[in-house]
């Protein structure tokens, strides 16, 4: 029964992934990670240049999930209260207080898109922390539960002025940090330029059927996946080594030119991060039609789950953009399994 249910959902998930692939072309990895996040119930931080399809991907994802979708733009004057309520004068001139984007749809809120999150103040980040971690918001003397909420935040890497870097705690609450780059395949680039299908996002998204994944069933199916996919002692040992290597790379033979490995790491991945890591890997195993985790599953999700959870010492932090991919790559290349 469980197998039958999981197989049915897997077919749906893979079909949805294919559909997303036709809407947002040249972003196979980003789409795969988005699907993994949906079924692992993890929040996603997107980073990339402007105009590469981040918003299109998220709108398509929200449409496929069904449920309510809210979007807010991060600005420097955005305050936490702006997410919870807004006030106005009604037609009779009376002041009114209405629920803000976080509370408006209540439990039906499935996708919350925080655009340009690094433009918002730390106070806003703090509110978001609790919302993401506990899927609830305290407002108007009561607690609002948002059980199906998935937060997708994005930040563009071009502009850094007047932005607030996300604190480590906020970053840690995102399951993935997905980098979306401009596609490099010439065929894809020509298609994006000359095919009018990709010029009008609304018309493009209208071709995608809504609510295919039944957002309010995802929590249940996600738990089923997590309990169904098994991991052996050897796999656990491999995962543990990957984790430890992110803390003490020198002990695991990780060497990078011009870097003192003993001084490199300020903080490695957190236990919560490693839990996200395994959850995502299990979803990948499920999508591959397996009921056991393989090292490939861990390796496939390791960069997106780890890169924003590892913090370098200040002396190396300014080289983060180049050093982090190299560090992750060295870990994956040097740790053997079994």
């Amino acid at each position: 029964m469980t197998d039958h249910l999981l197989n049915g959902w897997r077919d749906k998930a893979l079909q949805f992934e294919d559909q997303l692939g036709t809407l947002v072309i040249g972003q196979t990895d980003a789409i795969r990670h988005s699907i993994l996040a949906v079924f692992a119930r993890g929040h996603v931080l997107l980073e990339g240049n402007v105009g590469v399809g981040k918003t299109t991907l998220l709108r398509a994802l929200a449409q496929g999930l069904g449920g309510a979708y809210q979007r807010i733009e991060g600005t420097i004057d955005l305050m936490p209260s702006d997410l919870i309520y807004y006030t106005y004068l009604d037609n009779n001139g009376k002041p009114q207080v209405d629920a803000g984007p976080l509370l408006k749809q209540g439990e039906q809120l499935a996708t919350f898109f925080f655009n340009e999150i690094n433009r918002a103040r730390p106070q806003v980040h703090a509110l978001l922390l609790r919302t993401m971690a506990e899927r609830s918001v305290q407002a108007f003397n009561r607690t609002y539960h948002l059980p199906h909420l998935l937060v997708f935040a994005d930040r563009n890497r071009v502009e850094k002025d007047e932005t607030f870097e996300l604190p480590a705690a906020a970053k840690d609450r995102f399951m993935f940090e997905i980098t979306i780059d401009t596609p490099t395949d010439d065929t894809v680039l020509q298609d994006l330029m000359f095919n009018p299908r990709y010029h009008d996002t609304d018309r493009l998204l209208a071709t995608l059927p809504s609510g295919q994944l039944q957002f309010d069933a995802l929590n249940g199916i996600a738990e089923l996946i997590q309990s169904h996919i098994q991991s052996t002692a050897a796999l656990k040992a491999y995962a543990l080594t990957l984790w430890k290597a992110s803390h003490r790379p020198a002990e695991y033979g990780i060497r990078i030119d011009d870097v003192d490995m003993a001084e490199l790491i300020h903080a490695g991945a957190s236990p919560r991060g490693m839990a996200y890591f395994i959850r995502a890997a299990k979803v990948r195993a499920w999508l591959a039609g397996r009921d056991n985790l393989l090292p490939e599953d861990l390796r496939a999700v390791y960069p997106a789950t780890m890169a924003h959870r590892i913090f370098f010492n200040p002396i190396y932090a300014y080289r983060n953009d180049t050093l982090m991919p190299a560090f992750i790559s060295h870990i994956l290349q040097h740790i053997a399994a079994p």
Binding site: L294, P295, E296, R299, Q333, H334, I335, A336, A337, P338
Partner: peptide
């Protein structure tokens, strides 16, 4: 494990199926 080690030594880095 022995054969994995041989492959890894030959390759210089661990060899995975992928």
């Amino acid at each position: 494990s022995l054969f994995h080690q041989a492959l890894n030594t030959l390759n210089g880095t661990p060899v995975f199926q992928a």
